[in-house]
Amino acid sequence: MDPLLAGEQALLGAVLLDPRQLRHLDWLEPRDFHRPAHQAVFSALHDLRKAGHPGFDADSEVPLDWLTDTLALAGKHTRGLTPSYLHTLIAACPRPRNAPLYGRIVLEGSIRRAVTEHAARLLAIAEEDLAQGNIDGTAAQADVLVGVLADLAGRWGTPPRAQRPASTPDAAPAAEPSDAVRADEQFLLSLLVHQDGAVGEVFDWLRPADFAVPGHGLFYRCLGALHHRGEPIDSVTARWEVHRRGLLADGTLTDGQLAPILDSHLIAGSAEWSGEQLLRASLARTAGDSARRIAALADEGRLVPGQLIGQALHALGPLDEVRARWNRAVSPPQQPRPDADRDAQVAAALTRSSTPACNPSAAPPHRKIAFDSPPRGTQVAAGPNLPARSHP
């Protein structure tokens, strides 16, 4: 039998045998059960407790109407419930006093299903946005997933803190880039090679990992190295940088891949606009990769919910980084306030024009020199070997 199914049946059987166990299960909700019939039974048990059913306060034997009323109330919300199934639930419970532990099993299964469900939604929306060139739905669903993980962490009793996994699970592989994607990336790289200063337009927010084709990302890294060193970028310097890094020798890039990029001389277009389109697609792809990784984590039964939530938040880290660069790319440049500029200029001028304080005690002694002119007619000695002269 499925362990999760056994836990749900044991929990419901425990409450049917001992209704007072509901006092220890206030943190559990009907939606935490996987089977709709179990959701209906647990919801009926809660409703009977709120209504003050006499079976809830029974000190010894549980009255029969506790079972019949539960069956009647649950039958209004689901089909197929029979008295024999309630007896099946009762028989599945080894010890009613272990109901809180059975509830923990139910909650753990609920957390795994919730993480898997929202990761699947993020993947579906990301793939749709990637095909349509949008990111609004992807960003919104990513925020929903973060909120769900925080809520689940609160229910489990752990802080929503990202946790690096000890080993990365094998996720479903992403689709290979299409010919259209390859052509768009080649066009952007051609703009960066043949337009002066084009690399500077995207260098601050575009990264090699944003390219769907790994070879294109490595070529962009070569252009970024030339730009960082302040060297000119053209078809010759770009080819030499590729050669220096051994990308042709190890087969990472081929002459066939470089030809559409380096041999195109009449290139017209906006590198900034093309870079933004590439970054938009990178955000959707990164969201899909994060969703696949989270789904793989949820499939691993060895992770307790606290670890699953923490590692799922860690898997969303690359998406947060791409979103931050996207916001930087589309945000208008920050212009300094004129008042702040004027204040800075005044402060700098005052600093340059201020006279440093002088400490008289620290200054060396100076001989006082009189510049007063002697009276007219006074003989002034010009020197030991010079004749005296009269002051005019």
Rank of each mutant, 00 (worst) to 15 (best):
G7I: 07
E8A: 03
L12K: 03
A14Q: 06
Q21W: 00
D26W: 01
E29R: 15
P30A: 11
D32C: 10
D47N: 06
H53T: 11
D59T: 06
V62G: 07
T70S: 15
A72S: 14
K76D: 14
R79E: 12
H87G: 07
L89F: 06
I90L: 04
A92L: 08
P96R: 08
N98S: 13
P100C: 04
I105E: 13
G109L: 10
R112W: 03
A114F: 00
A114D: 14
V115H: 04
A120Q: 11
R121M: 09
I125H: 01
A126C: 11
D129T: 01
L130M: 07
A139C: 14
A142C: 05
D143N: 15
V144K: 06
L145T: 12
L145S: 05
G147N: 04
A150K: 02
A150Y: 00
A150D: 07
D151S: 14
L152H: 03
A153G: 07
R155T: 04
G157D: 07
A162F: 01
P169N: 01
P173H: 02
S178I: 00
R182H: 07
R182Y: 01
E185Q: 03
Q186H: 06
Q186P: 04
F187H: 06
V193A: 06
H194K: 08
F203M: 10
L206M: 11
R207N: 02
R207W: 09
G215I: 13
H216D: 10
G217F: 13
R221S: 05
R229L: 13
G230N: 04
W240P: 01
L247F: 03
L253I: 10
L258I: 03
A259M: 11
I261P: 09
H265Y: 12
L266M: 08
W273I: 13
E276I: 14
R280G: 11
D289T: 08
S290V: 11
R292V: 10
A295H: 15
L297R: 11
V304M: 03
G306D: 10
L308T: 05
L313D: 12
H314G: 01
A315S: 09
G317E: 10
N327K: 04
N327M: 09
V330T: 05
S331C: 02
R342D: 08
R352E: 12
S354I: 10
P360G: 05
S361F: 14
A363G: 00
P364Y: 03
P364T: 08
R367C: 02
P374W: 13
R376K: 11
A382E: 15
